[in-house]
């Protein structure tokens, strides 16, 4: 794949629609799969323009929380508030105009071009039978440019590499022009250069963002605040530096690590001992392994 070199472009910053603050508040969220709570009592708040990270081991409930925000899951309890309005009170299209997502699922549809897939981000804005209008085209062009995909616009989505596809799906979320972004592992499958590029892009966007990341160092560098999830509950919240402590890393992630000052950025840097045996074996109350929900 000959991807266009990722040159950071001077793109005119597009103001999120409405322009007024977007604030996401999650209150006492509970999600149950097959009678078992995978998320219980999660509370979190993302203020206007804040990037809030959700971190935690596999099966800790991160994705389930995000799915309730982009309305793939209906909470079993609690509420998600968007600027004080209950999300459930909005029509699906209305909430998709306010919340754009990169879901965990990475499908782009069948037999579509890159541009077609990005243009799908305009679905919540379009009426049945209406053709693509100027605003739609502008949003799609802009999203393609910001993810350095303009050169690939005519290519078939299925024929791209995993990393390129991921950028296309991110562009689809940008084209949605929502004030809130919900991103489930947006740097998965990306090479290091594109990972940094995506993080820089999100920092530049300055939209209210809820993001799940496995890479704790990336999360620490990107997020204003982190919430650490463990067994469906938030066990720590705050600035990355306060939250990511050796004790928590051992307790929640089962790793041996120290947190040092990053020699380049001055931020926290987690240095993990990859040779150490897992510090903890996670066991539920009944003694069985706490498996990750599907």
């Amino acid at each position: 794949m000959t991807a266009k070199p990722p040159t950071p472009r001077a793109v005119k910053h597009v103001q999120a629609p409405g322009g007024h603050p977007a604030r996401v508040e999650i209150r006492d969220l509970r999600v149950a799969y097959a009678g078992r709570d995978v998320v219980s009592g999660v509370r979190l708040l993302a203020r206007d323009g804040e990037i809030v990270g959700l971190v935690g081991p596999n099966g800790s409930g991160k994705s389930s929380v995000l799915r309730c925000v982009y309305r793939h899951l209906r909470p079993s309890g609690g509420t998600v508030l968007l600027d004080g309005t209950e999300l459930a009170a909005l029509s699906p299209a209305e909430s998709a105009r306010r919340v754009a997502a990169l879901p965990q699922e990475r499908g782009g549809g069948s037999e579509l071009s890159v541009r077609d897939v990005v243009a799908m981000g305009r679905v919540p804005h379009q009426r049945a039978f209406a053709a693509e209008n100027t605003a739609d085209r502008a949003a799609v062009d802009d999203a393609l440019a910001r993810t350095s995909l303009t050169a690939l616009a005519g290519r078939r989505f299925d024929a791209l590499s995993g990393g390129e596809r991921q950028r296309v799906l991110l562009a689809r979320a940008f084209a949605q022009r929502a004030r809130v972004l919900v991103l489930d592992e947006p740097t998965n499958h990306l090479d290091l250069r594109h990972q940094t590029e995506v993080l820089a892009l999100l920092r530049a966007e300055r939209r209210t963002t809820l993001i799940c990341l496995h890479d704790l160092n990336a999360a620490a560098a990107l997020c204003d605040r982190l919430h650490v999830l463990h067994r469906g509950a938030v066990v720590a919240s705050g600035a990355p530096r306060e939250v990511l402590t050796p004790g928590l890393l051992a307790e929640v992630f089962g790793i041996r690590a120290v947190v040092v000052e990053h020699p380049l950025t001055g931020g926290p840097l987690i240095a993990m001992d990859h040779t150490a045996a897992p510090a903890h074996r996670e066991r539920g109350r009944d003694g069985a392994d706490r498996g990750a929900p599907a």
Partner: peptide, 19 residues
């Protein structure tokens, strides 16, 4: 038709696009 395109991409994607 547009909702069908989104559905072809997957249930989660369709939900995220307001379908």
């Amino acid at each position: 038709a547009r909702a069908l395109n989104a559905l072809a991409a997957g249930d989660e994607t369709a939900a995220a696009l307001g379908v």
